[in-house]
Amino acid sequence: MTAEPEAAPETNENNRFFRLLNRVSDAGVIAGGCALIAITLIVTYDVIARFIGHPTIWATEISGYLLIAVAVLGAADTLRRNEHFAMTLLVDTLRGQVRRWVSLAAWCVVLLLVAGLVLGIAALIANSARFGLRSYTILQVPLILPQIVLLVGFAILALALAGRVIALVRQLRTHTTRQE
């Protein structure tokens, strides 16, 4: 059990899919970082504006949407750096090949979960689009906008998880061949 990032299996991979994945993950975390900076500025602006007697009515709502960007767009990059919390105390005690199988199974399940979630978010967006759902505030923001950000974040994560599964399968194969 350690948060010390062990090298992710996909870091050894180098082909078109993984190059694209890296680029998309980078773009995601940078967009998330920009959203974090934007939240800081917006909230600060709101405080100052209210102090001088001209409060905004949009700051709270917009920062709420940006929060979604901060929370999900960097998910793939966080995965690539193995920074999501996991408890590997028990798995670490397993023998090499057994351990690889267990890991593969675990990450396949996470991939399925996130892929399913992407479908769920797509259904949510379809529902919001059908009714033209908007926020109830003055801004009347179409709610598909923040929902699309959510979709993008988890879609990138699904892609990264697929990469993780591919890398694990290859690792498993390499070691099987070596044993033979």
Partner: peptide, 25 residues
Amino acid sequence: LRVRAPSEGLAELVKQLGGAPVAIP
């Protein structure tokens, strides 16, 4: 006055009466 207004309609009302609507949870 700076007035907390919880909804769109009430923010309109505050503006109509010459106040500044504020969104506060």
